[in-house]
Write a protein that binds this DNA or RNA. Structure first.
Lengths: 98, 98
DNA sequence: TCTGTGTATTTATATATCTATATATAATGA
DNA sequence: TCATTATATATAGATATATAAATACACAGA
């Protein structure tokens, strides 16, 4: 393990985890784990307003968790690193047992 | 994978992750990964006030992440589930690369 | 260029979290 | 019981986050 517990890395890890620590964003990541989705599709599947979805997506993109491509009017989002699913899976294993 | 992405489990996972998503608490978990510590020891190693340490420990205990035992005046805390370290390690691997 | 559709941003308000300070409780030993 | 040490809780002000509504922007087709 090269990565130290420096104040910087603790801060960065904390900020990234905090962005993940939201039900809607966890669901977005789960869905994107199955393949890319347009904002529209996410809006329907997550069940919150377009504006909220867009704001959540923006937070995740800011943290380099998602990336996107535009196809005509639509924008498709996908996980930047599929290993992120390991983290959400582990989270459920540890905290959602029953 | 038995665990579903129900609103309840998403909410619970989100709340637990959020408690982890703080630099001081990540450091506490890292330290407790090496073995139990008294509040006093954590106070010194983390470098924040006794009151703050106690409040962080309480949040973690509320989420069933830590457990404690009292020995005379001191209270020692430890990780309830050592697998939690897998989560913090993965977090650093994913988010603290550089 | 105008219109419609899809997405992003801005703004305001409500709510939650952080931190420090002060105070309270618990256990020990004199 | 009193004083001391260790830990926990309460409170308040500052800061951060969440959410909805309104608006702005981007693209495609007529």
């Amino acid at each position: 393990m090269i990565i130290k517990y420096s104040p910087e890395s603790l801060g960065k890890a904390g900020r990234c985890l905090r962005v993940l620590a939201h039900p809607a964003r966890l669901l977005i990541i789960h869905l994107l784990g199955q393949g890319e989705r347009s904002v529209q599709e996410l809006e329907k599947e997550v069940g919150i307003s377009q504006s909220s979805i867009s704001q959540h997506l923006n937070l995740l993109k800011d943290k380099d968790i998602l990336e996107s491509r535009r196809a005509a009017q639509q924008v498709f989002y996908r996980l930047k690193n599929p290993r992120l699913l390991e983290l959400t899976t582990l989270t459920r294993e540890l905290f959602c047992k029953e």
